[in-house]
């Protein structure tokens, strides 16, 4: 329980540091730290498959993408003016919403635990992915193809106009 709460605190603190960082590179690195903490949380939830995916894709691939994109743009653009005072009410709103929802949504969460017994026979992850949700795989393939075509269209070689 203490380990669990500690992981949550690490996630929240690294998220806040990623938002408040002045340099974009530091923000990307704090995002990677947050992804590592989320994957540890997934391992703690007994979800090793999702944890491995999170660790390899979010902490690895996305961090590399962010760092390479930040290194492609110049340093003067690091410091854009941010209207922070205008939205200073948002964190207070967040705290109030979290506390109120923690109080008032408790009966709903207790109602949710009624569904726990329906999942008594737990099929494995592979069976769920390949049998129950095999249409999702089609969606994933379509998404990947879309991303490849979009990136190809963005960086297409144009013919030199005369």
């Amino acid at each position: 329980m203490i380990y669990h709460s500690l992981l949550y605190i690490v996630i929240a603190v690294s998220a806040i540091m990623a938002v408040m960082a002045k340099k974009l590179l530091n923000a990307a690195i704090m995002l990677a730290v947050m992804s590592i903490a989320v994957s540890l949380l997934l391992f703690n939830f007994n979800a090793p498959w999702a944890g491995v995916f999170e660790l390899s894709v979010c902490a690895g691939l996305i961090t590399v993408l962010f760092i390479s994109a930040v290194s492609l743009i110049k340093k003067e653009d690091d410091l854009l003016k941010e209207g922070r005072i205008k939205y200073a009410i948002l964190p207070f709103l967040a705290a109030v919403t979290a506390i109120l929802s923690g109080i008032y949504l408790m009966p709903y969460f207790e109602y949710l635990t009624n569904y726990a017994r329906e999942a008594a026979q737990n099929p494995g992850v592979g069976e769920i992915i390949w049998t129950y949700r095999s249409v999702d795989l089609l969606g994933q393939l379509t998404l990947l193809a879309c991303a490849v075509f979009v990136i190809k269209a963005i960086f297409a070689k144009r013919r030199i106009e005369e």
Binding site: A47, F53, I62, T113, N122, I128, Y132
Partner: peptide
């Protein structure tokens, strides 16, 4: 919470891919 963690893992794998 609902003792159905394997389905949640399957959903999360899709979510991570969409994110990337």
């Amino acid at each position: 919470l609902t003792n159905n963690i394997n389905l949640a893992q399957a959903v999360i794998i899709v979510l991570i891919l969409v994110e990337a």
